[in-house]
Design a protein around this nucleic acid. Structure first.
Length: 290
DNA sequence: CAAGTGCCTTTATC
DNA sequence: AGATAAAGGCACT
């Protein structure tokens, strides 16, 4: 199947899948392979043509958020030269619309880990608790369902390399499975309401909640602040804060709760309703230029 | 080669 | 409220 992309609103598949928002995609030759839902999706881009197998066009458009009109997004978030530079370099990077359950578990696992390590943990979880798929080559397992992870023991989860996160994943899986938690309802809730609900899950703090809101619950105003975003703000946006505050968060090994709240609020106010897009461009630019 | 540092932080405990 | 320590393990220096 093919989709012709509009030349008016850019899309770049490589930037979108490489920028660290998702962890279970692999590139072999020109094709990207990823398990989404029950299927192995194979997709590649050639200029304005998107070619794929094993999914329908509507799903692809939704998953890659092809309906986001990026020129409008850019006009909202282009507040200064630094973000403009990041946009110029990674034009076409899009926020994904990921599955909320997988996103929740992924970012619980992501705390205090490098991206390669996160990928390994999620691969282990899928191989051990997911269902095997049949498609050419790739390590193809579905992401485990809430039922599958709720059944797993903490020891088994720890065996996947989760460490202290094993308990959080177990508790959260049981909560989601037990309540038949409805993520679609959170999509309909506003940002603040959905955020408060996410914070109730074990292993979910402000940063993890913001990632889930942005990458799977359609809250484009979410502005996750991790160590990289702290560096971005210290280097390029320090003049928006009092000296003392900047000194304090420079000295902190890890960002305090109040520090997080302040940087997060700055991002949302400064960049506006598409702050999440700004975050992703700045994050990816910082990681590739350090 | 050993030891230290960093990693898309959260939680428990003061 | 706000600070602090502890929680895998692996890659990198």
């Amino acid at each position: 199947m093919r989709i012709q992309l509009s030349p008016l609103t850019p899309f770049n598949l490589d930037f979108t899948l490489c920028c660290g928002q998702t962890f279970r995609w692999d590139k072999k030759d020109s094709w990207w392979y990823g398990v989404v839902g029950e299927k192995v999706l194979r997709i590649r881009q050639n200029g304005n043509t998107l070619e794929f197998e094993n999914a329908n066009a509507d799903f692809v458009k939704s998953y890659f958020r092809l309906h986001d009109y990026l020129p409008m997004v850019f006009s909202h978030i282009s507040k200064d030269d630094h973000i403009k530079t990041a946009i110029k370099e990674f034009r076409g990077l899009r926020i994904l619309r990921q599955d909320p359950w997988e996103c929740l578990i992924s970012y619980i696992c992501a705390t205090y880990k490098s991206i390669v390590a996160i990928r390994q943990m999620l691969l282990n979880l899928s191989e051990k608790f997911g269902e095997e798929m049949h498609f050419d080559g790739c390590g193809c397992y579905t992401f485990p369902t809430p039922a599958e992870l709720a059944k797993a023991t903490v020891k088994e989860l720890a065996g996947c390399g989760l460490g202290y996160r094993a308990r959080y994943v177990s508790e959260t899986a049981k909560a989601v499975y037990g309540d038949s938690f409805d993520f679609e309802r959170l999509k309909r809730s506003d940002y603040e309401t959905a955020r408060v609900e996410l914070l109730n899950f074990s292993g979910v703090g402000p940063k993890v909640a913001d990632c889930i809101l942005l990458f799977s619950l359609e809250k484009l105003e979410a502005f996750p602040v991790d160590v990289w975003m702290r560096r971005v703000i210290l280097r390029h946006y320090a003049e928006h804060f009092p000296r003392g505050f900047i000194k304090r968060i420079s000295d902190e090994k890890s960002l305090s709760t109040s520090g997080y709240a302040r940087l997060n609020l700055f991002g949302r106010r400064y960049f506006g309703e598409y702050a999440g897009y700004a975050q992703e461009y700045l994050y990816h630019y910082e990681r590739t230029h350090c």
